[in-house]
Write a protein that binds this DNA or RNA. Structure first.
Length: 599
DNA sequence: AGACTCACG
DNA sequence: ACGTACGTGAGTCTC
């Protein structure tokens, strides 16, 4: 049972502040009226620093003046007091919006839970309390109700919110102790305190800063796309001799395979019938003129709805920028994910893709800088596997795909044809996924027999890589998990499945995770280093996007060269591998027109 | 809510 | 005989 004291007068608040100032650490939990930190207003904050007892500062109370609330600033900004919380990135952002810079060491129970079990369905504090403390704590729905009669949390009586919020803060305090021990036990504490925790303010600032968008450009092209879509669909309806909903795969399937009777041999199937995915339709190219039109329609329609129409709606009217979320506790490998909107899948390549990227602009007097890690996954493979041949190639600065093809077919590098290089590139990528002959054949446009021979030769050339892949799979079977260079883990219970297909899937995940995850760890380290040093290089420069192996910045025209040089250097120095880490930098007025920058 | 499709690394 | 290449998020349709 948690006793939560309601703080609803200046006297009570002053006493609480004095108590907080004496703590080595405390939990805080901010209650706001909105999911988005930009719109959110604080209506209460709970604190906890001893088990069984919590405090709830009722910001709605008329007896607490804004001036008195400001007294909390010194507490939050005190470097010597450790801050505990669940989802500190959000709290950081809310405080920042209120002019407070959260400082001091931190412990985030959401991130701890994520590292201990990446891939969990949720990291809801109530679920964690149930699982780890064996206690059922008050749920939000217990206060707000559900369905039609639902009310919002700010509308609930402060006494009830206090009990709810205080209980969560108190549960967080107890979870900190449990998770700290578990992180230690599993060798995750270094990863937690040197990568994930320092990354919190970096991501928070990226989200707060956002990226400037030319909404008018997107809207103009949305109208153009709509007209074009109308033309294409009229042609399709004429050929099909029927009008139907082109966005419905079910209706499309009926038209193609029942009405037009296009042959379906060799086509993939889904749960509900024959697939009409682009991959399948490409097999039907030439079978009917309607196929090209449908592929055309699909591409245009996708870009219009997902980008041209959606992005302008997410531009913040105050900042003129999009403030996406960069999620730290979503992926099973350690990568970030992006949502609302996803800025990690902006189209690339193609005329309309270029237009969309051109809408990601720098403000007046600024330019965009993009820095890409070169072949980071394969460099990680070379380093983790300690394959001397691959290491040598990277140290020599060779074109790795050409080098691979040259060695496999025993021909000089300059004699490698584009086809051979393409096949080598495919397998170099495929290695990190546990690719089989079938997939290689499909991706490289060769026969399965050729692919088999290719793979055999590949592993003769890169014997260390083969051993690494085998050892990784064995490790997954021996321990039930795999890990990155920095100790990040992924548990793979399916590796023990009696169903061969399930076990094989787990094996591929086992191969992929240490590679993708180590690259993600390195990128996070680079982001922390860059965020740390960037203000000294250029006080107005901002890190605005991360796309797995790419970082995007905006910087004042006069600072472009030094920011680019600094970023490239930090990315190169982010980790010490057996091979050099290399980043390429580009710059331009917008993300669509970038020119390589020699530094 | 789940299926399908498709955008990215 | 075969959906066998990993990791994401979002728009749309359908039930």
């Amino acid at each position: 049972m948690v006793a939560t004291a309601i703080v609803d007068s200046q006297e009570k608040l002053n006493i609480l502040i004095k108590k907080l100032a004496k703590q080595r650490a405390f939990v805080f939990n901010i209650e706001t009226d909105d999911q988005s930190f930009f719109a959110a207003k604080i209506f209460g904050i709970s604190f906890c620093f001893e088990e069984g007892k919590a405090y709830y500062v009722d910001f709605k109370s008329p007896f607490i003046s804004p001036f008195a609330k400001g007294g909390l600033r010194g507490i939050f900004e005190d470097q010597k007091i450790k801050k505990y919380g669940h989802n500190l990135k959000y709290n950081f952002e809310i405080l920042h919006k209120n002019g407070i810079n959260l400082a001091g060491a931190m412990f985030d129970t959401m991130i701890a839970a994520y590292l201990l079990n990446p891939g969990a369905r949720t990291y809801d504090i109530g679920d964690l309390a149930a699982a780890e403390l064996g206690e059922k704590i008050i749920q939000k729905e217990d206060l707000t109700g559900e369905g039609r009669k639902k009310i919002t949390l700010p509308e609930v009586a402060p006494e009830k919110v206090a009990a709810y919020s205080g209980e969560r803060a108190e549960a967080t305090l107890r979870l900190v102790k449990i998770f700290e021990d578990k992180l230690k036990e599993n060798g995750l504490l270094k990863l937690f305190s040197e990568i994930e925790i320092p990354l919190i303010p970096v991501l928070a600032k990226m989200e707060i800063d956002g990226v400037k968008i030319d909404a008018a450009l997107l809207e103009k092209n949305s109208k153009r796309a709509e007209k074009e879509l109308k033309k294409i669909s009229e042609k399709i309806f004429k050929l099909a001799k029927i009008k139907f909903n082109l966005d419905s795969p079910i209706q499309l399937r009926q038209v193609l395979f029942e009405k037009l009777k296009i042959k379906t041999v060799g086509l993939g199937r889904g749960k509900t019938g024959i697939s009409t995915a682009a991959e399948e339709l490409l097999k039907l190219k030439g079978a009917h003129p309607i196929i090209d039109l449908i592929l055309n329609y699909r591409e245009l329609s996708k870009l219009r709805s997902t980008y041209l129409l959606a992005l302008p709606k997410l531009v913040n009217p105050v900042t003129g920028r999009i403030h996406a979320n960069f999620n730290q506790t979503v992926t099973t490998t350690g990568r970030l994910s992006s949502s609302n909107p996803n800025l990690q899948n902006i189209p690339v390549g193609g005329d309309l893709a270029e237009v969309i990227r051109k809408a990601f602009v720098a403000p007046r007097g600024f330019k965009i800088i993009a820095a890409d890690y070169s072949h980071i996954d394969l460099r990680v493979v070379a380093s983790l596997s300690d394959d001397q041949n691959m290491i040598r190639a990277f140290r020599a600065g060779a074109d790795i795909h050409r080098e691979t093809a040259s060695q496999i077919w025993n021909i000089p590098p300059e004699k490698v044809t584009p086809e051979l290089r393409k096949a080598a590139k495919t397998i170099n990528f495929g290695v990190t996924y546990g690719m089989g002959a079938r997939a290689l054949a499909l991706a490289a446009g060769i026969t399965i027999d050729e692919a088999r021979l290719f793979i055999t030769k590949y592993f003769t050339v890169y014997e260390g890589v083969r051993n690494f892949l085998e050892e990784t799979k064995q490790k997954a079977r021996d321990f039930g998990y795999v890990e990155t260079f920095f100790g990040r883990r992924r548990y793979l219970p399916e590796i023990y499945s009696p169903v061969p297909q399930i076990a094989a899937e787990a094996e591929r995940m086992a191969i992929n995770m240490p590679v993708q995850g180590t690259a993600a760890d390195i990128m996070k380290l680079a982001m922390i280093k860059i965020a740390d040093g960037l203000p000294k290089i250029s006080p107005t420069a901002r890190m605005i996007l991360q796309v797995h192996d790419e970082l995007v910045f905006e910087a004042a025209n006069a600072d472009i060269e030094k920011v680019a040089r600094f970023v490239k250097k930090m990315m190169g120095e982010a980790a010490k591998l057996e091979v050099p880490l290399v980043a390429e930098v580009e710059t331009g007025e917008n993300w669509g027109e970038m020119k390589r920058l020699e530094t």
